[in-house]
Simulated scan of single mutants.
Amino acid sequence: MTEPVSVAEEARQPFHRRLLRSQEGIVLALAVLAFAAFALLLPGFLSPGNLLVLVRSVSILGILALGMALVVIARGIDVSMIAIMVVSVSWAFVITRAGYPFELALLIGAGFALMTGMLIGALIAFGDVPPIFATLAAGSVIYGTGRTFFFTLEMQNVPPDTDWFSLIGQGSVLGIPVTIIAFAVLCGVFQLVLRHTRFGWMIYAMGNNPNAARMTGMPFRPMTVAQYAISAFVAYLAGLILASSAAAINARLFNSTMIYDILLVVVLGGIGLNGGHGSVRNVMLGTVFVGILLNGMTIMNIDYTIQNLVKGVVLLLAIVVDSLINPRDEQTSQQGDL
């Protein structure tokens, strides 16, 4: 078996070679082809308004994908993100209507998201529960707890007299929606953390070779807890932006295909499920491609069920391609990490 290419060695290689080594080049070509096809066949697709809507509509999905990407790079997965998002944001709105200051309620919601993320991380790190099962079960528990004890209505409206909050999802700066700016800022933060900090180096080391990471004395378990806490907090931020855009948060999102859309962005962008490689660039590429795909199908008025079928097929193909380009090593196959 060939030795995996280190992050530093990968970064020194020419960009076009890195594209050829992964599915990034394929996805980029498909995105360009899809964009060109929709531009030629669909009237109004190239209008500035539609292009702005396209980017804005997938910005929240891209933000969620950043949190998922961090976990996947470290050889994990988090399918509890949507449950954490809807419960923490909904509870913050309920607390506000109960008489608490809105800002305090938002802090309580953030605390709840961080706490649940840390508990999930601890379950995986100290209980040795496979991430897919831990997060799947935790998501159901979180959602059930929220609907039973925190709120009963599925739709929770943004509390009144919070005009500043509405600006997050509906405002713009120099004509650019704040939602897009928030996605760009978070991309910059994640790029800085992953590529230029010790924390980011340890994330890649965990995904590349977990046993070697443990042998070098890396705080493996605290790192696992930290990455799931970050993923949960990112989900909470995305939920706030979504609620601000729609003036409400709908708990039915938990039963939607949103978590699969997040995985579609991550895998389609080129972040391998066996961990150890990937970057913010992959998330941005996957987000743009999924945005083009969804926007084109919406303009063509394709039925929602058929859209889900198309997304499911694309996700399946992306996973197959990922398994061929980034084959699972013996360690991953034995442990069943995902």
Rank of each mutant, 00 (worst) to 15 (best):
I77M: 06
E3S: 15
L324I: 10
G111K: 05
E3C: 06
T135G: 13
Q23G: 14
T197V: 12
D161L: 12
G25I: 10
R214S: 05
I63V: 05
A39S: 06
L28M: 11
T135L: 06
A226C: 09
F220P: 11
S47M: 01
P327W: 09
A226N: 07
G276Y: 13
P222G: 08
A125H: 01
V189F: 15
A229L: 08
I292G: 01
A69H: 00
P14I: 13
A235F: 14
E154A: 15
A212R: 13
I168G: 10
F150T: 04
D303P: 07
P4I: 03
V27T: 11
A37C: 07
G217D: 10
D161Q: 11
Y228W: 12
I108L: 08
H16A: 15
E154W: 14
M206Y: 07
M218S: 07
M81K: 03
V234P: 04
I325Q: 05
V193A: 11
L64V: 05
L41H: 07
E154Q: 13
G291Y: 00
L106A: 05
M215F: 09
V266F: 00
D329L: 02
A37T: 06
T135Y: 12
A29H: 10
V193M: 04
F220S: 09
L285Q: 10
C187P: 07
V27I: 11
A246D: 13
T197A: 14
D329V: 04
G188W: 09
N274D: 13
I249M: 14
L119G: 11
I181T: 08
F133C: 12
I292R: 00
I142C: 05
D322W: 07
I176G: 04
R12P: 04
F126P: 14
R221A: 09
M284Y: 02
I181V: 09
I299S: 07
I124G: 03
V178I: 12
M258A: 13
L186A: 11
T96Y: 04
L40I: 12
S166R: 15
A34G: 10
G270P: 01
G117Y: 01
F151T: 02
G109S: 06
A235S: 14
L61C: 06
T145M: 15
A182R: 06
T162A: 14
E154N: 15
E9S: 02
Q227W: 08
I271F: 11
L167D: 14
G269L: 01
M118N: 03
G127F: 04
R198S: 10
V89Y: 03
P222K: 09
G109Q: 03
N295T: 14
A134L: 08
R56S: 10
M284H: 08
P222R: 12
P160C: 15
L106F: 03
A248M: 15
G278L: 04
A110L: 11
V58R: 04
M223R: 11
S279V: 07
A251D: 01
K311Q: 03
D337P: 05
G278T: 03
